[in-house]
């Protein structure tokens, strides 16, 4: 993680103070100078990644990460819509929660990714592993994100991976959530391709997979 530039720092500071107006002003001001996608990449994504790192380091709370994501989604969404700035065409990304009804982590990842210019399909929570496999195959996903809070849910990821493999799918399965943080080898044991420790890291992982053009 490189050091934040001045604009990203200002933006992050406004996010952590839950100051949506200041966030909008900062982005509007920068947007008027042109290059909205660049703005997202230079300011929004680094700020969200740093927020994720700060949470992992115990410097900020989950509630601040959540609110930052919500504000970001709103102000960036407005900016992209107003300027009809297109999002990335690939990868095709979907997210869901299996055998569990805790949806905050999923919500935070969605906010972070949408704020970073990625669209993704939200399959909801309380899904059976088979349902998620079916939907991932139907939508021909490149990346499937699975958010978990409960251990029972985390263990079920292996059923999703097995289902996808049986169908011959090459979709990359990325997991995240408390069970994977507290049991650091669990993501490998359930057959996931990688694990994100926070919503900012989810953005970094998707971006890396995109740069690697994993669908080719």
């Amino acid at each position: 993680m490189t050091e934040l530039n001045k604009r990203a720092k200002q933006f992050m500071d406004a996010l952590l103070h839950i100051d949506a107006d200041r966030c909008s002003m900062l982005l509007d001001n920068l947007s008027s100078q042109g290059g909205d996608l660049r703005l997202v990449e230079d300011v929004v994504i680094p700020a969200l990644e740093q927020i994720g790192v700060s949470w992992e380091g115990g410097d900020i709370s989950l509630s601040q990460v959540y609110m930052a994501g919500r504000i970001c989604e709103r102000v960036v969404g407005r900016l992209l819509l107003e300027n009809t700035c297109s999002i990335y065409g690939r990868p095709r990304v979907g997210i869901g929660v299996i055998e569990d009804y805790h949806a905050l982590g999923k919500r935070m990842v969605i906010s972070a990714l949408r704020s970073s210019g990625y669209d993704l399909l939200d399959y909801g929570h309380g899904l059976k592993a088979d349902d998620l496999v079916e939907r991932a195959l139907k939508d021909q996903l490149d990346i499937l994100l699975i958010s978990c809070l409960m251990l029972t849910s985390a263990v079920c990821v292996k059923d999703v991976v097995a289902g996808l493999r049986r169908a011959g799918s090459r979709v990359v399965v990325v997991v995240g959530g408390a069970p994977f943080r507290l049991a650091p080898m669990l993501w490998k044991e359930v057959g996931a391709h990688c694990m994100g420790s926070n919503s900012g890291e989810a953005v970094r992982i998707v971006r890396t997979l995109m740069e690697d053009r994993i669908w080719e």
Binding site: W55, G58, I60, S61, L62, S63, Q64
Partner: peptide
């Protein structure tokens, strides 16, 4: 826990 909620809260 400050891991969950802000110190202000």
């Amino acid at each position: 826990s400050p891991a969950i909620m802000s110190r202000d809260f």
